[in-house]
Write a protein that binds this DNA or RNA. Sequence first.
DNA 1: AGAGCATTACTGGTCTGACTACCTGAGGCT
DNA 2: AGCCTCAGGTAGTCAGACCAGTAATGCTCT
Lengths: 267, 267
Amino acid sequence: MAVSIPRTPESVTGKQQRTPRAFEMVVDHVEQSVLQGSLKAGDRLPGERELVNRFAVSRSSIREAMRVLESSGVISTRPGDPRGAIILPPTSDPLRKLMTKLAVFSRSSLADLLLYRMTLESAASSLAASRRSAGDLLELEKAMARMTQCLELGLEEFSRADLNFHDVVARISRNPMIQISGEAVRASIEDLIKGYLRESSEDRVLMHRTLHHHREVLEAIRSQDAHVAEHLARSSIFEYYGHLLGDSDRLAVAALASFGTPAGSVQ
Amino acid sequence: MAVSIPRTPESVTGKQQRTPRAFEMVVDHVEQSVLQGSLKAGDRLPGERELVNRFAVSRSSIREAMRVLESSGVISTRPGDPRGAIILPPTSDPLRKLMTKLAVFSRSSLADLLLYRMTLESAASSLAASRRSAGDLLELEKAMARMTQCLELGLEEFSRADLNFHDVVARISRNPMIQISGEAVRASIEDLIKGYLRESSEDRVLMHRTLHHHREVLEAIRSQDAHVAEHLARSSIFEYYGHLLGDSDRLAVAALASFGTPAGSVQ
DNA sequence: AGAGCATTACTGGTCTGACTACCTGAGGCT
DNA sequence: AGCCTCAGGTAGTCAGACCAGTAATGCTCT
């Protein structure tokens, strides 16, 4: 009998890839199951000890797999829960964390994130205008009302209500990717400028102007004017955050913001 | 003496958050170290057994932390390496993977993905027009040339060259987020329509029309006309993939594609 | 001395078995 | 019905062991 068989016939491929680790098998299998629909959001994974039997690996390996799946937002675990890990619906949370991390590590500027966000918000507004139902309009009005209430509570509360408005618009766009990416970049920007936003005498002016912009966006969505909604969304973000940018960055962001300006109408 | 102290004074915040787990301490500590610069790319972490001493947790917990850090691209490990895990330079790789996963898990329709992609590509083209250098133009020409060569090699090869062109444009936009999201959604779309693209007698027409569109985009970037570049990018994607959509979807996508049409110019 | 090679002393990857704190659901109580 | 208790099983954690693999050490040969 052959004594020493090369682990894999990679001598052929030439691509020296490492021996797959035990936990990777488990991760791949679960991800594939979610992908193929045999595991849906809300479903439960068997307990760790049961997974040990199914995959024929030790509990350590199972647990390492759980950590990886958890960190990419596929599952969630709770100590003591006899029902096992739960499959999560796709959310923006892990994306947000990675985005923030990358933004900080690579020193990518606030301008980069704002450009990305303007792109997404304007698309969301455009789609929302095309697809909004009567009920959606009510939700938007509610979000507007919340912003109005927060006028008195300071910039921080107001910002929260502001973000909520954008969340609603993104939801109405009915495009999961735009929605999730939007949530992630909004949160990431918040993480980054936390602290930069200090009390200022101009806060009231900024908040009122923002409120006005949002009202315009809402009306564009109401009248299902996708193009106007798209344009307004861009400029409104620029108006809100532009003052945080350096001169050169501001110029670049303004250029993108100006796109779609209806010839000789809104300003 | 008090007998039973609440684990944390969260009774105040009301925000019932779970007891931090052992491996999370390790993850946070390493991430903070990288963030604060005390750990730079290329540095080595101590071996797992040494980390057990430093953090006073078991090796299992250390290993779970390693898996999390690995999956978010902070470190890389190799079996048997006596120098310990290595700190990786920040890359967009994990973000791209997560985004791709999200695109697949969210079960977005082709129309959803196309809308998302049109949004990103147009933003990338706009920025590329604003920021392109002379060298960038050369790269774009090279990508164009490759597409021209692939005219003879069939739709599959041509599509690859097409995607490459978009990659180059995205790179020139110099916005990491737009670039990464673009890569992810392009890959997802390819996965989704793989197989749907079958040989057709109209392939040559499609390819030539696409080539023409890309030439227009390139010229807009050359003349630094951001608005035209943005518009052309949208419509060119629609032209390329539109025939794969159902009627209602096609209408919605066309609506977004039409945004920014310069009044009474192109077409 | 310097190049090449076997050895050695670790490493990461995996497994086992144990303990604790905790959650859930069943059954009994009011 | 609603509340409480409690048993069973769970995730989280730990200690200890083994294996396959790496790289630096020290040795040999030239």
